[in-house]
Design a protein around this nucleic acid. Structure first.
Lengths: 208, 208, 208, 208
DNA sequence: AATGAATGAGTGTTCATTCAT
DNA sequence: CATGAATGAACACTCATTCAT
């Protein structure tokens, strides 16, 4: 699979993202995709080889660029805490804008062949961990962050908080009286992001 | 579906839990279940009515008792922070011991018909939220907790941290050098639980 | 299978008659029957041996007595034409009152194993033909009926007319403005019966 | 479903006609059809959508053209009685040549969803009734037919006689000593047709 | 390069029947 | 004598994929 995807391939990938996110990988048939994307049933196998390879292509297509974005942040001229806050905001926003693919990443990859896992996804996770480490070590060197932070557990808290919130979207829409998708997205961008930033700040700075 | 399940029914439920957690609901066929559970294919439909009702029964069967356990905690004679810590430990441990069903709950219910969602699962979530609220209000009344805590966002942080950690089990096993399942479970019970407790404590107590 | 059927057996037969007539033999499951008759699923096999034998028992049970009724008519002190008319009225009424079983007889026996056909049903048909023959020969001897009547073709005309009418019940209800089942049954008893009687009379008496 | 059926589709329809007529709709499985037609099991669903839609297609396919044939008759330059006789001969012959589909029409549609009933079959029945009416009104205008004929009851007599005869084929083969299918078809074309024609003539002309 | 036709394997479910109790 | 539990076989149908064109 080359990187130069034509319009039809991109169309298929977009439809696949929506449907996989909505109904899961196994819950989505190639027929479903072809129907929504208004393409021939054989096209998926023709273009991507198989349904599984379609998923693989989808992940590669949608996650490219994230790594670069993360590392670029590190070099910015900001205080460590501001960097962390920016990283959180960037991460939450990026994921919230690509709910589909991240949902797939977290749901399907957990149960599917590990082949995909290692190649594309693990890299991102390591890149994320690495950039986090760099920032925190900078903060520790500057004496503003505690020394006993267990860095690998910060990502679960950051992302887990978001994912759990998103996974229970209907529940929180009810609880927090978020009537439209705009309300919801707005809440994520402001309140939820702030909550996560406060959480991480508390962990990095305050005595326990 | 009555509550008095016979041995074979429980066996089916246990197998279903494992397979649903491993391969997802749609990725698991009744034939798979019947093969592993060494029962006739027709038994699932015979006992539970349908594959979907099997999932429903499974959820009811595995989550019963949690609500009571949560509320019992509230009445114990403990300081608010200790209650919160105990609640976190209890929750994380309970979920870690029933990885299967909670994985299903969070994965499948997000995409499946909301029928299940509302009836059995939403209750648990509300019960959890309620008990959390009671404890925190108690702490606020005693002046030990901050007043501006956004209580509904605590659960996403508690559970999200655990789930994200668990979802990326292979990744963290590698990073944290956890060689066996025992190592992993031990890490969850001690370090991860402590991390979550510290996180919540920081949120409840420290200035931001 | 003995002739002394208990209450439950009769109940099963009655339910079977209704359902077989409504949905056909293959379209009716033993489960359907057991559900409507409020008996255990195993009872049908237990009492009647199998689903097919249930049908056999049903036919025997519901058609007994018809033969005797037919032959009794022959000995009555009536003019041949009146006997024919009475036979037609009796036959049409009897069948209309037992729509269920006759529908089954004509529908299912045409496609099912001929075993049943010969034993129970063929006898009735022969008895009917015989009584018809006796009456017509009496009329021919008296010089009131034509000599060149093809007697075996009279029954198809008598019964065929009724069955075709009944088979297209919704169509004729619309065409003839028969609003209730009572209207319909009334029409059969008066107009349709009279039509058949006139038809047969015309065939037996008039020149061609 | 378009009208342009390919060879395999026609083959399936022919096999389906035979089997449905022999064993009924519910008594015939898609497997049976695929086995006899020597096609893949999936082809039926692939070509026709479902078993029910196969039946629908079958009826449409086999009954097309009848309506036109009937109305064409009306315009012919014949005496009313000859028209009626020709209509009877045409009808009986057409049905006898398509025993299969007409058996299905009369048997299955009586118990199946009325959806089919109304659309395709009811039209034919109404067309038949209409052409009958036109011819009889012509005869009444010419003073050769009685005025008090109940026209809707003529079709049940014509078709009912044929169907009852055909339904009891084995019985009449025995009674009338019809040894081969050729003998049987011959008898239908000559004697039975003549019997029906005489019956209708007697009803239309003679005093009662 | 792209696709309509076709297929074998597999899906969840229902079937009539059996059997231990 | 009667029945709840259980089952292998069959059901209609959908699946991802292949292949000739």
């Amino acid at each position: 699979m080359k990187n130069d995807l034509n319009d039809k391939q991109i169309q298929i990938l977009n439809v696949a993202e929506t449907l996989f996110a909505e109904k899961g990988f196994d819950g989505t048939s190639i027929r479903d995709i072809s129907k929504v994307a208004k393409i021939n049933i054989a096209m998926v196998s023709y273009y991507f080889g198989s349904k599984e390879k379609l998923l693989e292509s989808l992940i590669l297509f949608k996650t490219s660029g994230l790594k670069e974005q993360l590392f670029h942040l590190i070099d910015e001229n900001l205080e460590p805490l501001d960097k962390i806050n920016k990283l959180i905001a960037l991460y939450v926003n990026r994921i919230n804008c690509n709910k589909g693919i991240y949902r797939i990443l977290h749901f399907e990859l957990a149960s599917k062949k590990k082949a995909l896992e290692i190649q594309s996804f693990s890299e991102i996770k390591k890149a994320n961990l690495k950039s986090m480490e760099l920032i925190i070590q900078e903060g520790q060197a500057k004496g503003v962050f505690r020394k006993d932070v267990i860095i690998p557990l910060l990502t679960p808290t950051i992302l887990g908080t978001y994912f759990h919130f998103n996974m229970n979207k209907p529940f929180f829409e009810e609880i927090l009286d978020l009537k439209t998708d705009e309300d919801y997205d707005n809440y994520v961008k402001t309140d939820l992001t702030k909550h996560i930033q406060q959480t991480i700040k508390a962990l990095l700075i305050h005595e326990n």
